[in-house]
Design a protein around this nucleic acid. Structure first.
Lengths: 232, 232
DNA sequence: GCTCGTTTCAAACGATTGTTTGAATCATAC
DNA sequence: GTATGATTCAAACAATCGTTTGAAACGAGC
């Protein structure tokens, strides 16, 4: 392909993907029509089907173009920490940094569209559309086991099930942190001032680690029982 | 209205609301069609318009029938704690219990439909549909200021903005806890065994309180600085 | 039983949707 | 310039959607 071809080819596709991405955030998958996308991208209606085949495939491509990279970055970060640790278990904050920190940095990128994408991703974790869920499961197939193992090793005294639940809660907190400006408006009743893209990470990470390391419900009770026994 | 009228009147409406509620959880608002709802409820297509006027109004009624009650319960719980405290600020765990604990108990109610509703609500906080968002804002108008004030008094050393952000993160964690079985499957790769409806609260509350009370990013740094000074 | 208001019914409506089609245009190689 | 594949175009298609319509059925009061 010549440079001119590559440019033209890339241009229409990218414009469609960008427009779709933004509209999916604003309106959701179903309520975003192909005509809305073509209108925003300035392309012909049939071009979407030509380049992507179907709306469903377009949705998947919107995710694939960034999510594959995101999950690779997560694994890379985990690899780096593990290399430094030389076989020892990682600290919780390292694992949280590798998974959530990478996401937050992407979400802070307003120039290259990472912000929009992460907002969309945050909403998509609980998306009821079956093919979207299946697609996500496929994309995360290589990542999730690695992080689970790392967490299990990092927190050997915490039952694996509890770890998974807490990871799940953390996912919810991050999704809202990134994408839930609507819910934030509900809570704050006005738009919180957020000029510094890095501020979100500084706010969220302590919260996540605090939750992850919080004593389990059963442990807190046991700790109190042990104290009186020592006194006796 | 006679008892027979009330029964018939209530029956069709309730069946529509129940069917809609369940389908909205499964498919989302847009992808759930009126014909799907009538099929599940066993009523005629025109009956929905007769009883509710429009799909949009039906959506709102699905929420209104339980959300109004839920928010009243939250305020009642807060009132009780405040009465016991006799003017003193509440403890964080009391406020968290009043807001999130009430939600979790409703979510644990699988017999009267609370579980389905809370799953739907959890998804709806980040719902892009504008009228849904506006509706939620109206429904929460009386609740949010009360809880904010209580939290500000409970945590006087924490800047209000940080409190709001953390409340927002907590909302995300709870939403996933309640509604995000899809995201949970993504993390766990299988359905976590959850026989005891109360187990979710025992898992989530320590997480929420841990996150809420976690040292702020700036404070953790300051604490370390103070320690060496005392030694010197 | 009759009247009247309520509720349900089946069919239809107008609009919208994702997809398809065949032609025109574009871009590249020879 | 010609041929060919790639890309875009406007129109059309079939299906679906929420809503409406007028009639039928139902239920309650007299």
């Amino acid at each position: 392909m010549r440079a001119a071809d590559l440019k033209q080819h890339t241009d229409t596709r990218e414009r469609i993907l960008d427009a779709a991405e933004a509209l999916f955030v604003e309106h959701g998958f179903e309520a975003t029509t192909m005509r809305m996308i073509t209108g925003r991208a300035g392309v012909n209606l049939a071009s979407i089907n030509y380049h992507f085949g179907s709306k469903e495939a377009l949705i998947q491509d919107v995710f694939r173009r960034r999510l594959t990279w995101l999950n690779e970055e997560r694994l890379n970060a985990l690899d780096r920490f593990e290399k430094e640790a030389k076989g020892a278990p990682l600290k919780p904050h390292q694992i949280v940094e590798a998974f959530f920190g990478v996401s937050l940095r992407m979400a802070a990128d307003t120039e290259r569209g990472g912000h929009t994408f992460m907002r969309l991703l945050g909403r998509t974790y609980t998306e009821p559309t079956a093919f979207v869920r299946q697609f996500l499961a496929d994309e995360y197939a290589a990542v999730v086991p690695r992080f689970k193992q790392a967490l299990f090793r990092s927190l050997p005294d915490v039952p694996p099930e509890e770890i998974l639940w807490r990871f799940h809660f953390m996912l919810g907190a991050m999704s809202y942190a990134i994408g839930g400006t609507d819910a934030l408006q509900l809570v704050a009743e006005y738009e919180l001032d957020e000029k510094d893209p890095g501020a979100l990470a500084r706010r969220l990470m302590p919260f996540l680690l605090g939750g992850l390391r919080a004593p389990l419900a059963g442990q807190a009770v046991k700790s109190k029982e042990k104290t009186p026994r020592k006194a006796a």
